[in-house]
Design a protein around this nucleic acid. Structure first.
Lengths: 348, 348
DNA sequence: TTGATCTGAACAAACGATTGCCTTATGTTA
DNA sequence: TAACATAAGGCAATCGTTTGTTCAGATCAA
């Protein structure tokens, strides 16, 4: 067991409160230099660190944050977490990580457990639209920030990117390359990114004067398997699409595997665009054209908004929206994968 | 602010301690059915959850574990974390995640912070050989389990795999394919996996009667960039190696990029074997032959050992060692990538 | 000499829950 | 009716800090 204030007090012959004030550098403390240095020596010698639980009880703060995400093995969320830790750690906070696997129930359980533990704030990236858990957080006045997805438009502090615009740019890119039958592997209508990216896709088509074919929108969700199944359905149509805009990179990866199985070349027979720009995207062959989402920056910014709420009691529900950026690679444009270094290849 | 026992007591007109006993289902409590149901109704109505901080202070346990790893954006550690959470969450524990980026200093800082917070136990996967931090944990009698890497052989509870054997199997695989100049992208000698995998590599060569060439062992560390630089050095030799055994998959990925830049075909001109079997390994083209490390199982098992220590006060420093398994893919054997579905490809 | 002021700390009340022991009222037994 | 048992719940210490207040002695001004 680590040493306590009382034990220290016994050893140095002063009252525990005095030691506490010395340890915390209480500016209002009047103390003789002799006593002070005796105490300081003891503090150093014993490497005293106040019991965080007791401190938390008294001060009503735990110096702990929580991050709730669908799954940390998804690189997007791993990067997000790093951003949070990088923002929180220098300011003395620890970060609890909770995975929900996309289950509202697990999310609710995690949040109940976290608030019982009295974490100082929560960063939530697994939100649904009109999410009861989020409303509960609001009602309990627990400092929180939503990331990437939101629940009720504008009511919570939020960090994300302009999903409508991102989807629009991606779709316009495909249109600009001459594609006219552009399909969409869509996210669930219960998730903001799903709705907004679909909306951006449709907006781009409308602006281009292309009549949207409802058959070309297939709900794949955010996982590889869903992307694969959706692609199978799309490619089995009589009038196949020549391009796919996927709601995220994992779904796009599913499209890759089906295309390869069917012997379709990317991008010649099928162009593919993803979303998120996970590290895997530029390791695929060909590289995956995708909309970049700065997950690490999301984490840093979300932490800033959260700590502002916690430490300065700020309440304005600030919304920080990043502008998305299209990263063009070989899945839409032949030869766009510069890292192939053609000169070196020719040497062979 | 959530409701407290005292506030509940005022509302229902009984002493707080009585409510506590009802909430905790104290078997020794004698209480009239009427009072009990009045209290239970109030508990349900207010959704009372005891303040975890106060509870922790009294009971001397926080129901929190910590996982300390180099970097969660490395899929190996992300999977490990999931294993820990999957093991800990059903038993009521939350998990704090700390990334060290391989810095002993950050590791020390994290551990200091975690013990000040009085987490109930620590799972450490970023250990160095003869690690002062680990010795400190032992000395402080803080329940802990080392994963994947160890510090002082046999002194701590440990979950990992037989790295010597894994490296031996990998090297023998290359030898069996006819390779005689087999290089090794090695880990640092300060890390157990680095030392043991190098040892396994050398053992395999010795058993095969191949004289080890010291020039063929290059320290690359565990990152892609190091792997790339090490491979450049190896491939610039007069008498090039025909195969590389990399200390982990990321280093192998570095080898891939250099090989491609130099126009070398894998596996024809250069065979590559990695270690860990991260998800990326079977997405590369060709698929990366690698030694499978069951990261998720590591996490589950480590949590079991840890909770045994915490809850049952078990002290035996159990060591759980998994037997590694070689996964053969296209980076060593042409056509081993079954997922390429040759029949479908031929259709083109 | 006597207040007044200042020094250098000690005292004690929180923070919210848990738990061994105690109290009061009622019922039972001898 | 006195002694005792039991039911139903209250009391208070405790976990380890923090912090507003108090207090004893020394110093100082008048």
């Amino acid at each position: 067991m680590p040493i306590t204030l009382k034990q220290l007090a016994d050893r140095v012959g002063v009252h525990p409160s005095t030691i506490s004030r010395v340890a915390n550098n209480d500016p209002g403390l009047r103390i003789s230099p002799a006593t002070r240095s005796r105490i300081e020596a003891l503090l150093r010698e014993t490497e005293y660190r106040p019991n965080g639980i007791a401190r938390g009880l008294k001060l009503q703060q735990t110096l702990a944050l929580a991050v709730v995400i669908p799954d940390v093995t998804n690189p997007l969320f791993a990067a997000l977490f790093r951003g949070v830790e990088d923002g929180a750690s220098p300011r003395g906070y620890n970060v609890v990580l909770c995975n929900t696997d996309g289950s509202p129930d697990r999310q609710r359980l995690h949040l109940a457990s976290l608030t019982a533990r009295r974490v100082d704030g929560v960063i939530l990236a697994s939100t649904f639209l009109r999410d009861p858990s989020v409303r509960w957080l609001r009602q309990q006045r627990i400092p929180h920030v939503l990331v990437n997805r939101f629940s009720d438009d504008g009511l919570d502090p939020f960090v994300g990117s302009d999903d409508v615009m991102g989807a629009k740019v991606a779709t316009q890119h495909l249109y600009g390359l001459g594609h006219r039958r552009i399909a969409h592997l869509a996210g669930q209508p219960t998730v903001s990114t799903g709705v907004l990216r679909r909306r951006g896709y449709l907006a781009a088509l409308a602006e281009a004067g292309v009549k949207a074919d409802p058959e070309l929108v297939v709900e794949s969700g955010y996982v590889e398997d869903g992307g694969a199944r959706g692609t199978e359905r799309l490619l089995s149509m009589r009038d196949r699409p020549t391009a796919i805009f996927a709601v995220n990179d994992m779904a796009a990866v599913g499209a890759y595997s089906v295309a390869r199985r069917l012997g379709l070349r990317i991008p010649d027979d099928l162009a593919v665009v993803g979303y998120n720009n996970i590290p895997l995207a530029n390791r695929l062959i060909p590289g995956l054209t995708t909309v970049h989402v700065p997950a690490h920056e999301f984490g840093i910014m979300a932490t800033r908004l959260l700590l502002d709420q916690i430490e300065n009691g700020q309440r304005p529900a600030r919304q920080v929206v990043f502008q998305p950026e299209l990263v063009v690679r070989g899945s839409t444009v032949v030869g766009a994968d510069v890292e192939l270094a053609p000169a070196a290849l020719m040497r062979e």
